[in-house]
Amino acid sequence: MTYDNQPHQAVVPPAVIDPHADVALLTQALIDIESVSGNERRIADAVETALRAMDHLSVHRDGDSIVARTGLGRSERVILAGHLDTVPLPTTPGSRGTVPSVWELNDDGAEVLYGRGATDMKGGVAVQIALAAALTDPNRDITYVFYDHEEVEGSKSGLGRLYRNCPELLEGDFAILLEPTNGTVEGGCNGTIRFRVTTEGRAAHSARAWMGENAIHGMAEVLTKLAVHRPVTTSVDGLDFRESLNAVRISGGIAGNVIPDRCEVEINYRFAPDRTPDEAEAYVAALLPGFTLERTDAAAGARPGLNHPAAAAFVATVGQPPKPKYGWTDVARFSAAGVPAVNFGPGDPLLAHSDDEHVPAQAIRDCWSALHRWLSAA
């Protein structure tokens, strides 16, 4: 007789979602499928299965990214996009912004859904899926894009991979990224660039500091200039983009009795979309003469794109003045490909990635209703 002494791994059943459910309950179902970046396979499987059951859509999968398209021959094509992944789950005991999700009532008696991704951005993804199920005959052709690896370095982006592997599936006239915006259209986004600045010194015993040169002290001029810098606000296509320039990380020193011979500071500059990354670098270099900037990362911003007729019609449907997006989002990828794009989704962006991440159920329903009205109006 033989025995199998190999350890058995628990079999995780496939996740099942109902695209015809109330969109807030659909959000809950998506939150309960844990999908931290790198672990999107199960949620991608569930989304793909739901979409392939919709006869009015053609569906394409690339890794854990999915593109579903109508083919009605309309004169205009709109892209609705959202990412499937989340940042890691919170580690603070008692955090409600985790998995599985929980419902609570706020002080006004309204339903609020807590869980990782509630705002960033499973509420938006639920809106996409529910619209795909409801809009069998929309007034515009629609491309629904669901992609992996948004919350990590850009080289892993599922949307970037789709643009490399099948760019023809992402052709369109206008795109909406369903990132959280509190239900207000946010046009474009700031660009972002990071630098490393290094100062060199000479090590010595701290009891004889005059024998050395303190590299941390040598960084004082850089830190002072960053501290007194006042952010610029630039109007781009009618929206005011506020910039920011900050030291975000510092390191130096090897022991408590040694004068440090090296210090590094990481700088992050969020710049208005009328600048290119090269222009942004030149701006920071002019602010810090005498110091060498080592660029470590950069992503161009995106102009608001609100001058496109589809964008104007959508803003009119939402009924609120548009705002600028200060953070970087994937609207920049669409803009770089020649597709004007805006951000519009349920939830407060300030709650994204927090231990307390949550979204009101009505905010998800209102987002769905606005898009449904716009895409079904005669």
Rank of each mutant, 00 (worst) to 15 (best):
E151A: 11
A336Q: 11
E243Q: 10
G124M: 01
S101T: 08
C263A: 04
D85F: 06
T136D: 13
L26N: 11
E221S: 09
S35K: 02
E111I: 00
S75L: 04
V23T: 11
T27L: 08
V78L: 11
G124D: 03
A81Y: 00
G212T: 10
A215E: 00
T199P: 01
T92W: 00
L288K: 04
T86R: 06
S244Y: 02
T198R: 14
H229L: 03
A286F: 03
I193Y: 00
H149S: 14
H149F: 13
S369E: 15
L26R: 09
G238W: 03
W103S: 04
L162S: 06
G319H: 05
R365N: 07
M54T: 06
G124I: 05
R161A: 13
K325T: 15
V315I: 11
E221W: 01
E76W: 00
V359D: 06
Q28L: 05
A286K: 15
P180V: 08
W328M: 08
A204P: 06
N39K: 10
N5L: 14
E40K: 09
E48F: 00
W103R: 03
R140S: 07
D261F: 03
S155T: 12
E168V: 09
D173R: 07
G319W: 02
S75A: 15
F146S: 09
F174A: 12
R194K: 13
I250V: 14
V232N: 13
I259D: 00
D62Q: 15
A280Q: 02
V248K: 01
L84E: 06
E168H: 14
R230Q: 15
P13G: 11
R373Q: 15
L26D: 09
L170Q: 05
V248I: 15
V78C: 05
R161H: 11
V197T: 02
P260N: 01
F241I: 01
I31L: 14
A118P: 03
D348N: 15
S244A: 11
R52L: 01
M54D: 03
R202W: 08
R161P: 02
A302N: 03
A53I: 08
Y269G: 04
A21R: 08
I142Q: 02
S251Y: 07
D297W: 14
G160N: 10
Q128M: 15
R262V: 10
E168F: 07
E294H: 13
F146T: 14
K156I: 00
D366L: 10
L239T: 02
I193S: 01
E266H: 07
V339Q: 04
F174I: 13
A204Q: 03
W328P: 09
D148N: 12
D297F: 15
A53K: 13
I254S: 14
L105P: 01
V258P: 02
N5Y: 14
E76I: 07
D240V: 00
A341Y: 00
G201P: 04
G109D: 10
A285W: 07
Q362A: 14
K156M: 12
A204W: 00
G82F: 06
L223S: 05
I254D: 13
P273T: 03
F344L: 06
P321W: 03
L162A: 09
K156C: 11
A209D: 07
D366K: 10
M54I: 09
E150R: 06
E151R: 03
R365C: 10
A370P: 04
R365Q: 13
G97I: 12
G187E: 08
L25P: 05
N214C: 09
I254E: 15
Y3P: 00
V125R: 05
F291P: 07
D107G: 11
V145T: 05
